[in-house]
Design a protein around this nucleic acid. Structure first.
Lengths: 360, 360
DNA sequence: TCCGCCCACTAAAAGGTTTTATTAAAGGCA
DNA sequence: TGCCTTTAATAAAACCTTTTAGTGGGCGGA
């Protein structure tokens, strides 16, 4: 694929004034580019240069508004100060929060954030990784992206649960999360608990489901397999939860609470329940997951397990930068973050009437 | 700020194998780098080269998995195929949707998306623009960013309403949007309509408010200034609308409908109303703006003016690329996109009882 | 007087491409 | 044979820095 050079864009002012470079400064000062570079970079070798000259150089640089070419120095130093970030879909609330955290830390440390999305297409994943590698990003952050990635650079995976050698994981402590949710429901008297499993493509799906099943078992109750529904479709809207809830109701197996896969699906489920005349939390209690910003303002406000998504993004960026700077040897280790149970209005004590079987 | 070169990261395999370059290929084939470059870029000058040689070159390139250095060719060709994207805050649903559209188009056209946020800090805006310029992005897309930006590259502004010379705008047709909302409420019998104005820092604030006032005037009703409340605080949560609604109620001026600044604030307002015993839409009708994904699944589902946010992002990217490729002269022009009124459950006919004055 | 050292810089290479200008060899024609 | 053209390539410059290895001159000391 050829790359054509472009005739330099005419400045509004008319003169195709190309930016001032080290050479221009050198000529203007009657010095060599080397000297200028040494001084401006405060390189150790510049100690031999008298302060007067240094001042002259610095002054001229400011006056001409000299900005070194990132391209040129990247080429020379083999450092791009750029990191690639891959998410399934940027518009998703989940990904957006994590990316916001990542971007903030990267920026603050002088790195650029190259944002990409793959829409769960394996081909797209490969193509994007190739493009990022071509641009010599120094590291990669994968968010909720359970696809194999082959890269010769440091990789941090958020909610990836990867076993891959050399991938640093930032994951939620799902056992704690599941225990919090189950305990909360148990303490309200619930015994028949329905569960939403995530979509196939979500990397949290398996881990979360297994943690919930384990937590239930440990608490002495079992999850009836007829009360387990898997979310389908890749729409990032409550639609998925709405459909799953209807499927659940259609099975006719009584339950008093739902542990949803995430807040989005919980919202959809609540709507489906209310449409069938099942009030939340009177007839059914619902626990969400994530604590997206609208969870608190839904009616009823959602009880949920909060994931510190933004913090996870920040951590991912911090760890990535550590990895990039690390000598071989002492590499930083994976990190687990703690969930928080946020009790709001969508959960309540189990109803008096023994079994509020859903209307069919 | 000095830039130190890093000792090349040891590959897992052990050999610090640096990537194969044009020179390596040349040596292996017994040709010069020039020839390889000519052939691989299918440059016009390569016509003189016999097909046999071309094949040899192409074959070797594939075999060694040769990937040209983006840095080097960018340096030489003065093209980076990168665009900077600035939003107030990446985690906001509004920005995330626009950015998703932008990223998709940029990627598909071979451009990289450098995502940044500024949190409404003018200093941060300047710093980010500087960093992006240093990296020689070929263009800039500003989303909801009403701050002056001085750049010598093409700029596209989404919902920016800038008058600046040389900035291409992608804006919603706010007059149409306001007319749709007002007409809808009028047709339901509402005459006392409250309005939320956006936060000071949002670039849509003024335009939207003026459009609404104009639409009301044109329809023969006036907006009582005591029914106008400005959102405050920069939290991207319904909290702002919740607070504004309480302020509105506290004023004790009767109203039967609210035209909110956006869906997020509408959600907060609905909660505030319900807490005061004002059912939506029975006692108060609420119209939102944006049509974020959860609007449809809120209870009650939100009637709202949809902005085609993703499409606006796509358009912005398309126009930016046009601008970048444009000869001086025929530049593409600004674009207005059309809103859609989405009628759901949060609006209804005005109540029978003449003036459902809010409980104080 | 001569050696070595310090001072204040600089020349040149390197990084990996693209592009312009040039060349060596072969072939055609007078 | 001598001249011109075509073929099949190549050398070198350019892009803009950073870094290594010097350099020339002045000066102190023996």
């Amino acid at each position: 694929m050829p790359i054509k050079s472009r005739k330099p864009r005419q400045q509004a002012e008319g003169g195709g004034a190309r930016p001032v470079g080290l050479r221009d400064l050198a000529r203007h000062l009657g010095l060599s580019p080397t000297t200028i570079s040494l001084v401006l970079n405060a390189s150790p070798a510049s100690e031999a240069i008298p302060d007067a000259t240094k001042q002259r150089v610095i002054e001229a640089a400011r006056q001409f508004n000299y900005r070194p070419s990132f391209l040129a120095r990247s080429l020379r130093a083999k450092r791009t100060f750029a990191a690639g970030v891959m998410v399934p879909e940027l518009s998703e609330g989940y990904a957006a929060l994590v990316v916001a955290g990542i971007e903030q830390v990267l920026m603050q440390r002088g790195y650029m954030c190259l944002a990409t999305s793959h829409r769960h297409s394996v081909g797209q994943v490969e193509s994007v990784v190739r493009q990022l590698s071509d641009r010599q990003v120094e590291g990669l952050i994968l968010v909720d992206t359970p696809y194999p990635v082959h890269a010769a650079i440091p990789v941090v995976s958020v909610s990836g649960h990867r076993e891959d050698e050399g991938v640093l994981n930032i994951n939620l402590d799902h056992d704690a999360a599941a225990a919090q949710g189950i305990q909360h429901l148990l303490s309200l008297g619930h015994r028949s608990i329905a569960v939403f499993q995530g979509q196939q493509f979500s990397s949290d799906t398996t881990v979360r489901w297994e943690a919930i099943a384990r937590a239930a078992r440990d608490s002495g109750i079992a999850i009836d397999s007829r009360l387990v529904v898997q979310l389908e479709g890749d729409s990032p809207s409550p639609e998925t939860g709405y459909a799953a809830a209807r499927k659940l109701l259609a099975r006719g197996v009584p339950f008093t609470a739902l542990f949803a896969f995430n807040d989005i699906s919980a919202l959809g489920a609540i709507r489906a329940f209310q449409e069938r005349g099942l009030r939340v939390p009177d007839a059914v209690s619902v626990v969400g997951f994530d604590d997206i910003w609208s969870a608190a303002f839904h009616i009823p406000a959602l009880t949920t397990i909060r994931q510190p998504l933004r913090r996870m993004g920040e951590l991912a960026a911090e760890k990535l930068i550590e990895l990039i700077g690390a000598e071989n040897g002492n590499l930083p280790a994976s990190v687990q973050v703690a969930p928080d149970l946020i009790v709001r209005e969508s959960t309540g004590p189990v109803a008096q009437s023994p079994r509020p079987s859903p209307a069919s």
